[in-house]
Computed example of a mutant assay.
Amino acid sequence: MASAFGHALLGATLGKLLLPARSHRPWWLLAAACAVLPDADVVGFTFGVAYASLWGHRGLSHSILAAVVLASTLVGLARLLRPRNQPPVGRLWALLFLATVSHGVLDAMTTGGLGVAFLSPWEPQRYFFGFRPIQVSPIGVKRFAGAAAWRVLRSEALWVGIPCLLLWLGQRFLRPAPANTPR
């Protein structure tokens, strides 16, 4: 898996890109959380859930279906609670879906594990992408330390951090001028 840092950074970047107004910053944080959440499945190891099972790591929680369910649930809650500065429903749903599904995308680009069950529960097959430059992160806080942590963080700085930074800068400096600006 990629680390929680890489997942959160990509989720927040998607938030900034899809909901650029500063008033939407809380939604960027929710997108970051959605991007990290699929790894909650590691709690299954404590209960003896096999890695390769439907409920195992990178299984159902990393699927496209899980992203649809999570985005739909959170948007439904947002509509009920009606928070201030709520973005358009469709745009919010797209953000939360993309942030959640981005988790599996990053994991499918790592150098280890069993792959990602994108099509679970209908298809148990797990997938990796042909391009796998991100160093796999050890599972567990205790194992994510020292040389292993630096190896993963350097890899993510290159393959997640730099692209996110370029997207942020591109949005900032390449956006069109407002229509009512005098020429």
Rank of each mutant, 00 (worst) to 15 (best):
L74S: 04
V75N: 04
V75Y: 12
A78Q: 00
L80D: 02
P83F: 02
R84E: 09
R84I: 00
N85E: 13
P88S: 13
G90E: 05
G90I: 03
L92I: 02
L92W: 01
L92V: 09
L92N: 02
L96W: 11
L96N: 03
F97G: 06
L98S: 12
T100E: 03
V101G: 00
V101H: 00
V101Q: 03
H103T: 11
H103R: 03
G104K: 15
G104M: 14
G104I: 10
V105S: 05
V105D: 02
V105W: 14
L106T: 06
L106V: 11
A108I: 02
T111N: 07
G112H: 05
L114I: 10
G115E: 01
V116W: 08
V116H: 06
A117F: 03
A117N: 08
F118V: 13
P121W: 05
E123L: 14
Y127T: 06
F128A: 03
F128Q: 02
F129W: 12
G130A: 12
G130L: 07
F131W: 15
R132Y: 03
R132N: 01
P133F: 08
P133D: 12
I134D: 07
I139N: 08
G140D: 07
K142H: 13
A145P: 06
A145W: 10
G146V: 07
G146F: 11
A148C: 04
A149P: 01
W150R: 11
W150E: 14
R151C: 00
L153F: 13
L153N: 05
L153W: 15
S155G: 00
L158M: 14
L158Y: 09
W159R: 04
I162K: 01
P163Q: 07
L165H: 06
L167Y: 03
W168C: 10
G170V: 08
G170S: 13
Q171G: 15
R172H: 15
